[in-house]
Amino acid sequence: MNTKLNDCTYLVTGSAGFIGFYLTKRLLQNGVRVIGIDNVNDYYDLNLKKSRLELLMQYDGFKFIEGDISDKNMIMKTFEKYRPEIVVNLAAQAGVRYSIENPDVYIQSNIIGFYNILEACRHFPVDHLIYASSSSVYGANKKVPFEETDFVDSPVSLYAATKKSNELMAHTYSHLYKIPATGLRFFTVYGPMGRPDMAYFGFADKYFSGESIKIFNNGDFKNDLYRDFTYIDDIVAGIEGLIGHPPTETVPHKVYNIGNNSPEKLMTFIETLEQCLSNATGREVVFKKEFEPIKPGDVPATYASTDLLQEAIGFKPETPIAEGLQKFADWYVDYYNVK
């Protein structure tokens, strides 16, 4: 990271979240000042979020504000007080399936909350706004790998619709107010201290609770689900690389895929996780498996073309799933004191 960027004040929303935590930690390790905002909600294990925050609090450069980005007054006051030059908006209500059961919170956080961030960037101009979009915007697109130029006007979940809305809102604000903004379409991020609502984490939980895991591919190994599993360190390296590359077009708004560009069959991923947990525990781990139909809102294959990001910053993920899942398994066994 160059010296000029080191002198900036960074605002990271969702700093107690999975990606937000790792990005904030990397920035703090680089010696920069980071203002973190998070509402520390109970969508998943609060202890995990508190553990992440405790690690961040060890750094002198970290200032934490517990609050919700849907609180416009709090957002405006924070921007006015700290005048961040770089804003990374990772606060959002995540999860495809949860959006079917709890739509209100998605509108509150992902639409109203993001609008507040854009308004703050309008009134207190920033050098670069980076925000989380999602691979889910590609909906049920059949053509893979997904490319940024693909048609994305047919979302199959409310979560996906909110993320597509974020891209449209950011483009509009970039057009009207020249806010340099970059959206990132994340593809299945995993790693230690990850989100317990993600499949790989849930599989480990189920195994150690003596329960079977549910696999939503109908047991069809020939036409298995494909996913672009992307290790957290590769994601953070991509974000870090983009910080100093704000868009400079007439409308300064860009959207990039950020993924592994190397899809894995879901069953291969599961077998690798079994092996990694076996290594971590010193005993053979085999999941009890139940096969069910694919769920509403899920899609058969999601993986990214990352050519645009590679052209922009030389982005190239370096972590194979066997290595990334081993790091997760070792952390999980230690953190939960699994015997």
Score class of each variant (00 low, 15 high):
Phe269Tyr: 13
Arg227Pro: 15
Ala237Glu: 15
Ile270Ser: 02
Thr272Asp: 02
Thr268Gln: 01
Thr230Cys: 14
Thr230Asp: 04
Asn260Phe: 11
Ile232Met: 05
Glu274Trp: 09
Asp228Arg: 08
Asn218Val: 12
Asn217Arg: 15
Lys289Pro: 00
Ile239Lys: 05
Ile243Leu: 13
Asn279Tyr: 05
Tyr231Asn: 10
Asn279Phe: 06
Asn223Pro: 02
Asn279Arg: 11
Ile258Asn: 07
Lys265His: 07
Asn261Phe: 07
Leu277Trp: 06
Tyr256Phe: 15
Gly241Trp: 03
Leu225Cys: 13
Gly259Arg: 11
Ile239Phe: 12
Arg227Leu: 13
Val236Lys: 08
Tyr256Pro: 10
Asp224Ile: 07
Gln275Ile: 03
Lys214His: 01
Leu277Pro: 07
Ser278Lys: 06
Cys276Ala: 07
Glu249Lys: 10
Glu240Ala: 02
Asp224Glu: 12
Met267Leu: 04
Gly219His: 09
Asn218Ile: 11
Asn261Trp: 08
Leu266Val: 14
Asp224Pro: 15
Ile235His: 06
Phe269Asp: 01
Pro263Thr: 01
Glu240Val: 07
Ile243Gln: 03
Phe287Asp: 04
Pro263Tyr: 01
Lys265Arg: 15
Leu242Gly: 01
Lys222Thr: 13
Phe221Arg: 14
Lys254Arg: 12
Gly244Met: 07
Thr281Tyr: 08
Leu277Met: 10
Ile270Tyr: 01
Gly219Phe: 13
Asn218Glu: 13
Glu249Met: 10
Ser212Glu: 11
Gly244Asp: 14
Gly244Glu: 15
Leu225Ser: 15
Arg283Phe: 11
Leu266Ala: 13
Thr268Leu: 05
Arg283Asp: 05
Ala280Met: 08
Arg283Thr: 15
